[in-house]
Simulated scan of single mutants.
Amino acid sequence: MKKLIAAASLCVASFSVQAAIVVPEYDVNAGKQIAETVCAACHGVDGVSVVPAQPNLGGQNVKYLYKQLVNFKAGYRKNGIMQSQVANLSQQDLANVAGYYASQAPWGVGFGNPATNQEATKLFLGGDKSRGIIGCAGCHGPDAAGNTWAAFPRLGGQHSQYIATQLKLFRAAGREDDIDSDDQKRANDAAKEGEKGMMQTVASKLSDRDIRILADYVSAVH
């Protein structure tokens, strides 16, 4: 419990340096129209993706969704496909899409790995003090449901492939790996460019095995 409290305190401190995320009043029906024409091929009309590399969005926290879309449009989060998809959308469009997907039923549950479940549970809930890793549950909750107020995303049931990819992108940014392409790093957890956010800091200490077992674990959490 002490580890969870400490981790939560660090997360709140990290979030407090960022400007509060305020989602404009949104129109779910307008968001659905955009989702059907722009987003559905990758994320599904109802926010359930059939492609493991693409995230499920249905029932995700609206602040998180809106922030990611704004970051893609501003180029703060790099991904060629997403940046091209939102290029012609207004801020209001982004809010509408975020609101629509957030209003959908949460996605289902994936499949974990029984062989690594105990090890992954310990890492997710309590971290690893010997390596300076805080538990994921401090920010994302013991049930991986996220934190709506702080715009921390729901992870439970998400595709393990997508989770693993994002952790590696955060790790590359946190370790300042010498990678030519910016879209091979993810640094939009920080308050501004040039700083390191919580996810970069945590992911920089994770091994490939850590990432694999955590991704499998959260995919099965519900």
Score class of each variant (00 low, 15 high):
8 A>F: 09
58 G>D: 02
30 A>W: 12
113 N>F: 04
141 G>P: 05
103 S>V: 11
136 C>I: 11
94 L>H: 02
24 P>L: 06
64 Y>P: 09
103 S>Q: 10
153 P>K: 01
158 Q>P: 13
22 V>R: 11
198 M>N: 03
143 D>M: 13
47 G>A: 10
28 V>Q: 14
77 R>V: 12
179 I>E: 00
189 D>I: 02
211 I>N: 10
149 W>F: 13
147 N>T: 12
195 E>M: 13
44 G>L: 01
69 L>M: 12
35 A>T: 14
101 Y>F: 15
141 G>F: 03
50 V>H: 05
194 G>K: 06
183 D>C: 02
144 A>S: 14
155 L>R: 05
2 K>Q: 10
149 W>E: 13
131 R>V: 03
84 S>F: 05
212 R>M: 14
109 V>E: 05
102 A>G: 14
145 A>D: 11
34 I>Q: 06
31 G>T: 10
86 V>R: 00
75 G>W: 15
97 V>H: 04
109 V>Y: 10
179 I>S: 00
134 I>L: 05
143 D>W: 09
138 G>S: 11
156 G>C: 10
170 F>E: 14
120 A>Y: 03
217 Y>T: 11
123 L>G: 04
70 V>I: 06
39 C>S: 08
48 V>I: 02
146 G>Y: 06
183 D>E: 14
131 R>M: 09
122 K>E: 11
57 L>F: 11
137 A>I: 05
34 I>L: 15
201 T>N: 14
123 L>E: 01
12 V>A: 14
46 D>T: 14
100 Y>M: 08
182 D>C: 14
68 Q>R: 07
154 R>G: 13
16 S>Y: 01
194 G>F: 11
28 V>Y: 11
69 L>Y: 01
59 G>V: 01
95 A>C: 03
77 R>Y: 10
190 A>R: 02
102 A>M: 04
141 G>M: 02
206 L>H: 03
82 M>S: 02
116 T>F: 06
186 R>V: 06
105 A>R: 13
51 V>W: 02
124 F>T: 09
196 K>F: 13
58 G>V: 04
140 H>Y: 03
4 L>Y: 15
19 A>C: 06
220 A>P: 04
206 L>Y: 02
100 Y>V: 09
